[in-house]
Design a protein around this nucleic acid. Sequence first.
DNA 1: TATTGTTATACTCTATAACTATA
DNA 2: TATAGTTATAGAGTATAACAATA
Lengths: 154, 154
Amino acid sequence: MSSRADSGSASVRYPHEVLGYLLKHAHLALEGYTDAALARFGITSRDLGALRVIAGGKARSQQEVAGVLGVDRTSMVALLDALEQAGIVVRRPSEGDRRRNVIELTKFGREMFLDAEQVALAVEKDFAGILGDKGASDLRRSLRALVASPVLDV
Amino acid sequence: MSSRADSGSASVRYPHEVLGYLLKHAHLALEGYTDAALARFGITSRDLGALRVIAGGKARSQQEVAGVLGVDRTSMVALLDALEQAGIVVRRPSEGDRRRNVIELTKFGREMFLDAEQVALAVEKDFAGILGDKGASDLRRSLRALVASPVLDV
DNA sequence: TATTGTTATACTCTATAACTATA
DNA sequence: TATAGTTATAGAGTATAACAATA
């Protein structure tokens, strides 16, 4: 809670010293490259993120997918509408609980996903290449730590 | 350009292995904490980013500020409208070129900015604290490298 | 009563196009 | 002609509230 306006313009940081700026612009840059590379599949990096969750494990409901991605369940509707219309996923009522939709990749969707994921992976490798193998893996580890740990006292 | 769909579900990555996911969620988390801490100043982290550029140096036009932040000049209008209405900045026609507005902090704005920047800095320190001093500075250096270097061949 | 998916709605951030005043 | 700021507008992404079907 320190409120000392003690220093003059010497304390003004450049954007490249600000962690939030760096995280945002690194993300925007990578997202831009990834979206450009995924354009030929007709999907965005956002779609690929959802497909990853859907492909990643056991049958997922819309709400579970939304939860993992950190978006609202209402936001999943339009996203899945587009993926279903493109023949990439199908909605199927859950057998155990007919309120829920189980989301599954179609055969086409799974093949496309695997190709798209390889492309996205290659883009990431290029993007992080400047850091070297160790630098890139250190970056990932640090980011994982930040994402996993809640800051309690702000 | 490798398109080998060679592996089965073993190649499906968890979101926490995906660099774009980590960058996005780390940014969202930090932005959330920062916005909460800045609420008492009546500004957002986005506003603070603009104030940083305005406070940082020589007289800036709206378009220069927008350029540094990587947003469109049209997006600056509403942002500056709010800051000006709150008495934080003033627009002044440039003497050399009367098409341009020079953006300056008011006395109140400068004092508030310095306080707000201290608060934002403290939030960042808490947020990155889990990494330790070296880890945090390594993270910054890596992100700076990513933001600075364009990926040419995607 | 509570929950899942859905729709309607709104708010923010962003960008494009056209206008104005200056250059 | 070109540029800085502005306005109008539209497109994403997000969120809240309310509804139908189901639990």
